[in-house]
Design a protein around this nucleic acid. Sequence first.
DNA 1: GTCTATACAAGGATAGAC
DNA 2: GTCTATCCTTGTATAGAC
Lengths: 219, 219
Amino acid sequence: MTTRDKIIFAALRSFLTIGVDQTSLSNIADAVNIKKPSIYYHFKSKEDLINQCTFNILDDLEHRIDLSFEQIDSPREQLEALYECMIEFHKNLSLMVYENHHQIVNLTSFFQRASLESDQNKQRIDGYYHALQVKLISLLSNGQKQGIIKNAINKEIVSIDLIARIDGMITLSAIYEGANINTQRYGLYESVWDSLKAEHTPKKKKMLDYKSFDLGRKW
Amino acid sequence: MTTRDKIIFAALRSFLTIGVDQTSLSNIADAVNIKKPSIYYHFKSKEDLINQCTFNILDDLEHRIDLSFEQIDSPREQLEALYECMIEFHKNLSLMVYENHHQIVNLTSFFQRASLESDQNKQRIDGYYHALQVKLISLLSNGQKQGIIKNAINKEIVSIDLIARIDGMITLSAIYEGANINTQRYGLYESVWDSLKAEHTPKKKKMLDYKSFDLGRKW
DNA sequence: GTCTATACAAGGATAGAC
DNA sequence: GTCTATCCTTGTATAGAC
């Protein structure tokens, strides 16, 4: 792991837990065991560091989403795989940045802060959501062709709604005790599919092979 | 308007636009046309000010939500009224804090930041969401009794989902160009109701009397 | 209740030695 | 590539006059 990578790792860790503005370059330097000015050898400024973190994380997330789409044909399972992928990504981030596992990171609020930092970030983040929406619209179309998703939907709005539901639930999990994406996601999937499926669709035969989870913790 | 109120107003305006951490007491003082130390006559510290803002805004929002519930019997219209109320609240905030109307404030990210500030805030925010969930569960139960909401739902998860959908869509509107709660909300209502309604429910007869909106702007 | 003056800490950033 | 030393700005907060 290069020093540069260590800095990005430490920065992200702090950005996602205590927030961008409460993260000082001194703290990052301490975490990496270097001195503050050394950061400036690798990054032009704090803004530069924030930008790199944003791009790093979005490139990774998009890549994983693409992979999860490729392996599956069925629209229903594709949608679940997408949600699983996003949740797993958040979960991995949470495990990475927190010592205990009872807290979930909130990428969305980081994205919002990053959007304010530079137009470059703003566009990158907008592009991420746009790509996601395009994927979902195509997924909905496929489902309609196969007759398993009802025709009477506004795909543009439903696709936004699908993003809002998963993003919203992850965010809620971070601030509301009653929400817990880790235990409630299967209920969410049922509920989501229920709102999309064509009437008289046969019930789903088998569950996806979800990884098992540690119990006794919130996240 | 007392000086105290002016300070809260100015603080909120800045908290919701550029963020809590990028708001300095000097800026707030300038906006209110007083000097920085005068703020300390009214508030013990910046943390105190953040707490007061949180409570102010949540008391107001909860009050409006209660009012919107009281006037209506039908679960479907009650749900729409709730969403309308939350959207209108955000819209009013947006008009208040921004000079132009193309941007939407994001309360959720403010809540997250406020949660980190003090346990007092954390509990207040959690309580807000809990009250909302309780209202929604009761709404769902009523709808089931009346035979217009299907029985095969997990009310606990669906109620969380309903909160996530509106909160998520408002948040998305703030960072993704393709999302616009102002123009897409009626589509959202349709989509939401569609996912709840018992099969063979007669179509809704009349629209609620929604206020008209200025066109040609995002928010 | 509001001010001036000021203390004190911490932030981002640069110069220049090694 | 990393360091020490340092600059400059800004932040929160307090003392004490009016």
